[in-house]
Write a protein that binds this DNA or RNA. Structure first.
Lengths: 111, 111
DNA sequence: TTGACATATTCCTATATAGGAATGTAATAT
DNA sequence: ATATTACATTCCTATATAGGAATATGTCAA
């Protein structure tokens, strides 16, 4: 079997860095596609394809406004990811101390 | 270009559902590979390969114990994902009301 | 050593990208 | 009608899986 489709869920959709940038950009307010292209310096076709993926999993919403289409992040769709990652929150403190021990015990790796 | 490697970062690594299950399973305490195989009902080779990916991005740590290898989730590596998704937290309330409006204004789609 | 146990890697294949180029489609203005 | 603007989709290709089977590696026991 190959990898699951990028459209299979929000986890797969946000794995792509450009899509994460787009989501951040569209979080504050809706924007036309052209603005995304200009601001993020991506090919128009790329942006459209990324938006298609994001739309398929409900991460963005669209509405038409004349010739333009205005996209906007649907924050609600990101919530499940925040909740899943939040399950590990209570382990962070303890983990930190272990990391520190290592950092102090072992010599640093050089680049 | 193809999709980025699963080992390119934590976002790509956790996109795979089985890897998320493994992370949850290894969060509480370290476990040998065999336990993961038995509990999650996966092929041994699959588990080893998933663990390899998780290890490459720092999501799990290993130590040998005799013949076994004990794996454990490194919660700290999940933190960046929690923080990224957290950027959208303040939009959740407002978004909810918009969703509600839609649900009430439009007739429901049938399956 | 030889064997058994535990885990890792390799070999194989079908599938799904992401990006760039080219083309298709929808909306508006003249 | 036609041109223009704004997006979306299709065509193309290199690449990276995930899973199952088989094999390799590593550790301990007798």
């Amino acid at each position: 079997m190959a990898r699951a489709a990028t459209t299979s869920d929000a986890f797969n959709a946000v794995a792509e860095p450009r899509r994460r940038e787009i989501l951040i950009y569209l979080a504050l307010r809706e924007r036309p596609v052209g603005d995304i292209v200009a601001t993020l310096r991506l090919e128009q076709s790329s942006v459209s394809k990324h938006l298609r993926v994001l739309r398929d999993v409900g991460l963005v919403e669209v509405r038409r406004d004349g010739r333009q289409k205005l996209y906007r992040t649907n924050a609600e769709a990101i919530r499940p990811l925040h909740e899943w990652t939040g399950k590990f929150e209570r382990f962070w403190q303890h983990q930190l101390s272990r990391i520190k021990e290592r950092a102090e015990g072992k010599p640093k790796e050089e680049a």
